[in-house]
């Protein structure tokens, strides 16, 4: 067990030594991997921030239930009772058509045009607040109310929040696709780097095999190299995004204080950052593993 640990420690320090022996090449390699990872990471961070923003500013989950023009006052009252009795409705308010017209007038300043209309074109309405805010709940309520008698139309007032949600979901898919494509790139970069290393070290590999090295012993430093450059690339990506965010927040500050908005883009949290490093290390390891499997067999002396 201790000798196993010692062997791994030695492979690890050996890999670091090898990285330092060719500092420029290592740096370029890490930069390439870092850039490949920084792209999806950046998008992810922006999406996460937007999502946070959307959560903070999402309005009351309100529905406007517009009555049919021919509905009487009694029918409107009955509908109100039925709405209040429905579970999932936490508050309701009646907006008579006259009040709606007044609001329209005062808000839009279209007095002249409205005065020119033959009558009040607006219907009576119940504005209700739903207990749940998620899109599915609101949709279900809307569908149900739509079926009720004397209801002309039901409108979900927080529709925009839902659109944003859908947009964000689309964005998450795009990030996932991008991340997958660039994960392939990372694996390919590592694969090729290891291939070149195996080529330049084939004497060493041959001699080591001749004097009794196991395949595991020969593979280990390459696998470590893949994992360590992968993790270093992940770290580089993290730093790049950190720099961009710092710059952006700096620029955003005057604008944000002007509108009194707490606009500040935040980076990945601690556990997500660790996950990123592990993920990058795993991809590098995988690329190295593929390369070693493919290329080391070629140098079997027997």
């Amino acid at each position: 067990m201790t000798s196993w640990l010692a062997a791994h420690r030695r492979a690890c320090t050996g890999t670091l030594a090898r990285l330092l022996r060719a500092p420029l090449a290592s740096l370029f390699n890490i930069a390439v991997i870092g850039t490949a990872l920084a792209l999806p990471l950046g998008f992810y961070v922006i999406l996460a921030n937007l999502q946070e923003l959307a959560r903070d500013y999402s309005p009351q989950p309100q529905l406007s239930v517009f009555l049919a023009p021919e509905a009487t006052a009694a029918e409107a009252r009955a509908l109100g009772e039925r709405l209040k009795a429905r579970s999932g409705v936490s508050a309701s308010r009646f907006v008579p058509r006259a009040e709606a017209l007044e609001t329209l007038k005062s808000r839009t300043g279209l007095d002249d045009i409205i005065a020119g209309l033959p009558g009040n074109p607006l219907p009576d309405a119940w504005v209700i607040t739903a207990a749940g805010a998620d899109a599915a709940t609101l949709d279900a309520l809307r569908g149900e109310f739509q079926q009720w008698p004397k209801v002309a139309e039901v409108h979900v007032d927080s529709e925009w929040a839902r659109r944003l949600d859908q947009l964000l979901a689309l964005g998450r898919h795009a990030v996932l696709l991008l991340a997958t494509a660039l994960a392939f790139a990372l694996v390919a970069v590592t694969f090729n780097t290891i291939r070149l290393q195996i080529l330049t070290q084939r004497d060493e590999i041959e001699v080591a095999k001749l004097i009794g090295a196991t395949d595991g012993w020969i593979r280990r430093p390459f696998l470590y190299f893949g994992a360590i450059t992968g993790a270093a690339g992940g770290g580089a990506a993290w730093l790049m995004i950190w720099g961009v965010l710092a710059l952006f927040n700096d620029r955003l500050q005057p604008l944000a204080s002007l509108y009194g908005l707490p606009l500040r883009l935040t980076h990945l949290n601690g556990s997500d950052s660790i996950t990123l490093l592990f993920f990058a290390a795993a991809l590098g390891w995988f690329g190295a593993w593929l390369s070693v499997r493919r290329h080391l067999g070629t140098y079997n002396p027997s």
């Binding site: 004497d203 060493e204 001699v207 001749l210 004097i211 009794g212 090295a213 395949d215 079997n300 027997s302």
Partner: peptide, 24 residues
């Protein structure tokens, strides 16, 4: 078996006709 060869070779000290030294 291929896996057994490394352990067999550790019984030997090998001096090669072409040395097989590592020049780096």
């Amino acid at each position: 078996r291929a896996q057994g060869i490394p352990f067999l070779r550790r019984n030997f000290g090998l001096v090669f006709q072409d040395h097989k030294l590592l020049f780096d």
